[in-house]
Write a protein that binds this DNA or RNA. Structure first.
Lengths: 341, 341
DNA sequence: GTGAAAGCGCTAACAA
DNA sequence: TTGTTAGCGCTTTCAC
């Protein structure tokens, strides 16, 4: 079976390629193509089930009307929510989305960037996984609009939108302290991950501001398994915490599992708090107090910033100014923090 | 800034386009291109940061090495898990994935199909949202390999892989009955959704097999909101159920919320069961007994089936046989079902 | 109102 | 061992 192209339509209708193209692009009027001709073309296209070949269009126009998005893990509900929102928002604006999963791996991310660039994307949103920036610099050199979301590199000339991770963690620890907790442990995610580091810094800053001696940071991955293992480890320590701060909800589930196994009741035996505010926190054995990330706002702003650049770029070839947007998250209070004043 | 193409490299190195192309494709040896030439080309490509233009390659080769995947909602953890697994598996096999979110809407799905086809995908995995099959038939006519996952149309000549929804629901209701429940209500998802209908049928079959008079099916969307509303409604009924079967975990969360608000304890006042077995079920106030969907197996088999077709198709232009694969899910027992014998 | 022809970046048949 | 050239499907300039 031969491919159906505008040539097929052209032959079947005895109308030139140019005219078919114009009709299909809805600019028939502009070129004052007779209604009769237009009609004939449209009918034939319909009959044949013609679908334009995007590759050809991209090649010709050097435009693909698509945006790339690189997330560290599609399996993580936080990121898949980002994907969902970005996809929907872009779709409304007539762009399509190419998603890539970097699997929290720098090299995979670098490959993903290449892959997306080779597909002629107009811009790219990245939640970076590592510390390398060479591939980002390549993008800048290519004049390809980039925006970071959730994680970022302050030193690069690249706009970013993110939860203020430091502030979120800081607030939570201050809150814990205000409830009388002096021994607060924290289970972190990937140590090299920027958002994680900021949260840990926020944790430490609050501890030290209040002049406490106890500080404990365990863990190294945003997974349930790691949360579980690290909590088991933590519970072996001589000096036990009165509260555990899980730096993500995935970690939290592991923490809860370990606590349950070892017979700890939340919040009676130990208090718990988390970062992410997933929808199911309300329904847990003990509903967990958590930092709510403004995920939808962040995603929307990122797109706004990116598309601004995409449009602006057309005009004079340079990028618009770097924007640094940090959104302060708030605490959603539930029942997992015990008052021990 | 001009685009970097093989032509740029060709000019800079005084080597023909063909040779550059061959070197870049790693077939230098086959054409016995001198190591010196190859080296020079490679170096220049590296220096320039050359990235091949996929649109041009697609156009030329009529191959894109990419597969489309249409899911009803990226925001639903079940589907985003499918995306995650499919993405990873395809990536390993050298294919890239184009994801589309149909938003549980038939027309959006039809648009998505067009969109994917226009991007020259080699095959497509669909979790269909509606009952229309015209767009699917178009795909068949185009000889484009299609596989259904999770939901399917028995009457179409299209392979499918899915949880045996009927069997899953049937098993669960039989189990509930075996624990002494005679009044079992069910909150369903989208009524027009095939997987949902199968589950409802399974529910009804088990009820009628046991000759009970009570049957209640409420709801019409796989969302927490709907689960919540429908449970509120259900609790208004004169005849109260002793057990509620939520046909998805999203629905379940709504059910639990309503139950909690109205002061019902699970499982003491009322038993609960669900479909999906999400990771967090273990940590709920009362861990919920649920049907575990073999999501990873399903995804992998689907890819296997699809790629078989993709390869096979090259050989003689027709599709390989239709496969109908239903996997029986199992019950994961937790504590939400009370024995009322 | 319509059409011819060039060219986007790439590959491959054919030539040398 | 390397190069010439046609052509994938489309848009657009220029021409009539």
């Amino acid at each position: 079976m031969k491919n159906i192209t505008i040539k097929t339509i052209s032959e079947n209708t005895q109308v030139s390629l140019t005219t078919v193209s114009r009709v299909m692009n809805g600019v028939a009027e502009k070129y004052r193509i007779s209604a009769k001709t237009a009609e004939r073309v449209l009918k034939e296209a319909e009959k044949l089930g013609y679908i334009p070949n995007q590759s050809a269009i991209n090649l010709r126009l050097k435009k693909s009307f698509s945006i790339g998005l690189i997330v560290p893990s599609l399996a993580n509900p936080f990121f898949s929510t980002v994907v969902s929102i970005v996809n929907k928002t872009l779709h409304e604006k007539g762009y399509s989305l190419l998603v890539a999963d970097s699997n929290e791996n720098e090299q995979t991310e670098i490959d993903a960037v290449k892959h997306l660039v080779s597909r002629n994307i107009e811009g790219i949103i990245i939640i970076p996984s590592g510390r390398k920036t060479d591939h980002i610099n390549q993008l800048i050199k290519r004049n390809l609009p980039v925006v970071f979301v959730d994680r970022y590199f302050k030193e690069l000339p690249v706009s970013y939108v993110s939860t203020d991770h430091f502030d979120g963690a800081f607030k939570m620890v201050e809150y814990l302290i205000s409830r009388g907790h002096k021994h607060i442990a924290c289970i972190q995610g990937g140590r090299h991950v920027m958002s994680n580091q900021e949260r840990v810094n926020g944790y430490k800053a609050a501890i030290s501001k209040n002049g406490f001696g106890y500080e404990y940071v365990g863990g190294n991955s945003f997974t349930m398994e790691d949360g579980y293992l690290e909590t088991k480890l933590l519970l072996q320590q001589r000096e036990k915490p009165t509260a555990i701060f899980a730096l993500s909800d995935t970690i939290l589930l592991g923490v809860l599992k370990a606590l349950k196994e070892d017979g700890y009741q939340v919040p009676d035996d130990i208090s718990v708090a988390s970062f992410d505010n997933s929808i199911y926190l309300d329904y847990l054995a003990c509903p967990v107090t958590s930092i709510s990330q403004p995920i939808s706002e962040i995603s929307q702003i990122a797109i706004r910033l990116l598309l601004d650049k995409v449009d602006y770029q057309g005009k004079d070839g340079s990028l618009s100014d770097k924007q640094e947007i940090l959104i302060s998250p708030s605490i959603i209070h539930r029942k997992s923090v015990k008052d021990i004043l």
